[in-house]
């Protein structure tokens, strides 16, 4: 059941010089209760901007949010109702808790804001701490953030998000600032809470492995656009978009499907590094496929904006390589979809 529908979300940022910067470009998706949607992509691709727009921390330029099928208000009572339903866990647990206040304060405030009476407040606070495995809860209530470890802080942040009994949790790289040893613990905690409380989880990450492991669906974002989406296994095992393949290839490991130099001609004419040069030229690729400057398969048609192609099973990709007409013309040789050894 879809809890939060995002339709054509667009976010522009004003720039001091030049035109507005489009951080998120007509992105649509939906968050389903009891499911995790992973949003992966490089830094600056607009992942966090989406989370912030959904958390109503910035006002989108365009698009619509539907909570349980109803449009979402921008202010007053309606905004409060929305906030109660959609909560966020921030990336950096060292910054997301106020150093001046105790753990108890952080959990009591959201409860009080939504009208929980003073009576019985402490019991609820302790129950929240217990639900994120901070036991014995009483010993943590009066602790200050600086007395806790990174993992414990993130647990408190999760407990705070749970305090309003939301239906949606936006987790913006919830483990990237934590020690590797406790990442899995926190992710398992989130996963368990999602199942117990039937939460719709948006999991923003860099990490393809955890994205596959913890999520039902994966969306790959590049420069403000969703370039590929689909069931987690399908996207990871059979990446269709050259950018997803690049991401995939960048993960070190035995099962790395292809070598980087196989994927992209690193040296271009005159010995220039194509990838680096492309990254520098990036900002100019405003029309057409945004990845084409870095894409090893770039063709003439890429200067026009690609449309999403359905590869079946809900696996969508925004790339001309998978357009039937283009494939016909190029004799089907370019399509890199099946390049992964485990591919169909």
């Amino acid at each position: 059941m879809s809890v939060l529908q995002v339709q054509d979300l667009t976010v522009d940022f004003a720039q001091r010089r030049g035109p507005k910067f489009r951080a998120v470009d007509h992105v649509s998706f939906e968050l389903v209760a009891g499911e995790t949607l992973a949003l992966v992509g490089e830094s600056g691709s607009g992942k966090s901007t989406i989370a912030r727009a959904l958390a109503r921390l910035l006002r989108p330029t365009g698009g619509e949010l539907l909570l349980h099928g109803r449009p979402v208000g921008h202010r007053g009572r309606k905004l409060r109702d929305y906030r109660r339903e959609v909560q966020m866990v921030f990336q950096d647990p060292f910054a997301s808790l106020n150093p001046a206040y105790t753990v108890g304060h952080h959990l009591r405030r959201p409860l009080r804001i939504y009208g929980h009476p003073r009576k019985g407040l402490e019991e609820v606070v302790e129950a929240l701490l217990t639900s994120v495995n901070m036991v014995p809860a009483t010993s943590f209530v009066s602790k200050f953030p600086h007395e806790l470890s990174g993992g414990q802080r993130q647990r408190v942040a999760i407990a705070r998000a749970l305090a309003t009994q939301p239906g949606v949790i936006l987790a913006d790289e919830p483990v990237s600032m934590l020690d590797v040893s406790i990442r899995l613990e926190i992710l398992n905690l989130l996963d368990g809470l999602k199942r117990d409380r039937d939460l719709a989880l948006l999991y923003i990450t860099h990490d393809l492995a955890t994205a596959r492991y913890f999520s039902t669906q994966i969306m790959v974002m590049y420069r403000g656009e969703i370039v590929e989406r689909g069931p987690a296994d399908s996207v990871i095992l059979r990446p269709a978009h050259p950018y997803t393949q690049l991401l995939e290839a960048s993960v070190p490991g035995e099962r790395t499907p292809h070598r980087l130099d196989e994927l992209a001609p690193v040296r271009g004419a005159g010995g220039t590094n194509v990838i680096l040069a492309a990254e520098r030229a990036e900002a100019t690729a405003a029309t057409g496929c945004r990845f084409r400057r870095r894409c090893p398969h770039a063709m003439d048609v890429c200067s026009t904006h690609p449309v999403e192609q359905d590869l079946g099973d809900g696996h969508l990709v925004r790339c001309w390589l998978h357009d039937p007409k283009v494939r016909e013309k190029s004799g089907d040789r370019a399509a890199p979809q099946q390049s992964a050894p485990s591919g169909a």
Partner: peptide, 21 residues
């Protein structure tokens, strides 16, 4: 800062964010 944003996400009123947080 994140903890101010977190207070906003919690639905804290602006004057309270300034004075208390």
């Amino acid at each position: 800062r994140d903890y101010i944003l977190a207070a906003r996400v919690s639905g804290e009123r602006p004057w309270r964010i300034v004075v208390v947080e």
